[in-house]
Design a protein around this nucleic acid. Structure first.
Length: 480
RNA sequence: GCCCCCAUCGUCUAGUGGCCUAGGACGCCACCCUUUCAAGGUGGUAGCACGGGUUCGAAUCCCGUUGGGGGUGCCA
């Protein structure tokens, strides 16, 4: 059996390399991929780089690496529209020969001038009857029927009707001869026998144009069944606007660099516009493939909520076996340089890892939790020092007494250290939680962080005593 | 302006005419646990945009209004 052969599902993702790979594109890719996997069909990657001036070559690899990172594999491609212009020329010729196209030499300014004040929007078809020949400097426009209705059958929204008179004679080829995306898409979708076109809602208004071209080609270039369309709800920002590369943080690459797990990202993304039939929120890609149905996709825009994504990521991180957690950290550290990898193979890490794992939201948080281990970067936070040490009248005494006991400790391990601090706490009639604050800030640098005694144990006696001394000095010297 | 889409807690959603005094999740608040912070546990806050219909009965169907969004490029 051929993968995605005749009669099976064939879908594609068609990103354009004009910026970083977008979370919205990722979700579209994911749903497409689900459709293909569920049906044993084919998922195709096709880079839409028909606009040579706009596309950024470095984004080409970025798209593919983002897809791979998310675990979205493809069966065919990646194709690049920039390498398929021969196909578009053939399609253009067929359309031209059947009089579906006409040449137009109106400048942009001329079009604007002609259009202003017209009842029907867009180009008024001035060149329709001028009988211009094709040639350099002349764009090619599609002759849209004056009457009738073009219907887009949408699997999510039902039939959407567009009166033909509201569709202008749109350009399908630039005056330099290059095909425009609406033409290239149809040519490719026909050529690749795409059965389902799943894309963001923003494309809905241009879909009737694609339908018109497709039907015209069916008359002249051989019949290929129209694909089923499905327009996914937009992903929006907090202001309910379509998330954009300029305004919002949308790059998959950013989230990856920050230490989000791909499985958490994919899981969260799947939930934007769709929900699992039994209401569960956590599921594997295999579960998703099995349960996903296009008809269940929502109609309304969804807010990309980083807070909820962060929660998902935390859940996924905590679910990792400890070894795997460390492996992920190492991988992330190597990739981003966000953390000294040697830490991860140190004995200290062996003790701290489980404590870190249950606290981080993203892998990028790890450094903040283990930073106290590095003398080069260790510094007591001023704000924390003020709050927990300077403003605590008993802090000097507590630090002094703790230092006495820690200094005399035969073995420097968590249980003993805790006991020592408990004794000091009792002397000051404080709960342990209150008594440990000055010590925590003096030794770990912040009021919040990993459990104190385990941290002190791995820090070691010498460094702990030294840091307490430094805090006492700072108190003495800086006593206003 | 014109074309198109959309409308349940702040957010993501369940809900497809009676099971809804509308369920879950994130967030937020409180309490519990507790060596800080997290995590975990318990409880709480908060919503069917509005107006007409249809129906014995409407969050669910129809119409309108309002609101939001997308498109309107020789971009994708």
């Amino acid at each position: 059996m051929t993968i995605g052969g005749e009669g099976t599902v064939r879908v594609r993702i068609a990103p354009s390399p004009t910026g970083y790979f977008h979370v919205g594109t990722a979700r579209t890719a994911l749903y497409n991929w689900c459709l293909a996997r569920a049906a044993g069909g084919a998922f195709i990657v096709r880079i839409e780089d028909t606009d040579r001036e706009r596309h950024q070559e470095e984004q080409y690899e970025g798209i593919l690496s983002a897809l791979r990172w998310l675990g979205i594999d493809w069966d065919d491609g990646p194709y690049r529209q920039s390498e398929r212009s021969a196909l578009y020329d053939i399609v253009l010729d067929a359309l031209w020969d059947a009089s579906h196209l006409y040449a137009c030499d109106c400048s942009r300014e001329a079009v604007v001038a002609r259009t202003k004040g017209n009842a029907t929007p867009g180009y008024d078809g001035y060149c329709r009857a001028r009988g211009l020949e094709r040639g350099p400097g002349r764009a090619l426009r599609f002759r849209v029927p004056d009457d009738g209705v073009t219907v887009v059958h949408d699997l999510i929204r039902g039939d959407v009707e567009f009166a033909n008179r509201t569709i202008e004679d749109f350009v399908v080829a630039k005056s330099n001869g290059d095909a425009l995306f609406v033409l290239a898409v149809v040519a490719d979708d026909r050529d690749m026998r795409i059965t389902h076109v799943l894309r963001a809602e923003e494309h809905l208004p241009t879909t009737p144009k694609a339908v018109l071209i497709w039907e015209a080609l069916n008359e002249t270039a051989g019949r290929v069944p129209l694909p089923a369309f499905a327009h996914l709800p937009l992903l929006v920002n907090a202001k309910r606007q379509k998330i954009s590369k300029r305004r919002d943080r949308v790059a998959i690459e950013d989230y990856r660099a920050q230490g989000f797990l791909p499985e958490a990202m994919a899981n969260y993304l799947a939930l934007l516009g769709w929900s699992f039939p039994d209401g569960r929120e956590f599921f594997t890609p295999a579960d998703l493939v099995e349960a996903f149905r296009l008809e269940d996709v929502n109609h309304s825009p969804a807010f990309f909520d980083e807070q909820k994504l962060l929660h998902f990521n935390g859940v996924y991180i905590r679910a990792l076996p400890l070894e795997e957690f460390t492996a992920r950290c190492r991988h992330w550290a190597q990739e981003t340089g966000g953390l000294d990898v040697s830490v991860l193979s140190s004995p200290e890490w062996g003790v701290l890892a489980p404590l870190v794992q249950e606290r981080v939201g993203v892998l990028g948080d790890v450094g903040g939790y283990v930073g106290f281990l590095f003398d080069e970067t260790f510094a007591v936070e001023d704000e924390s020092f003020e709050k927990a040490v300077r403003r605590d009248e008993e802090a000097p005494a507590i630090l002094f007494e703790v230092r006495e006991r820690f200094g005399g400790a035969a073995s420097f391990e968590a249980a003993g250290l805790k006991q020592a601090l408990e004794e000091v706490a009792e002397l000051h009639q404080r709960r342990l939680g209150k008594a440990q604050a000055p010590v925590r800030v003096a030794t770990l640098g912040r009021t919040v962080g990993l459990p104190l005694f385990e941290s002190l144990e791995v820090l070691g006696q010498a460094r702990v005593l030294d840091r307490i001394d430094r805090a006492l000095e700072r108190l003495g010297g800086g006593a206003d």
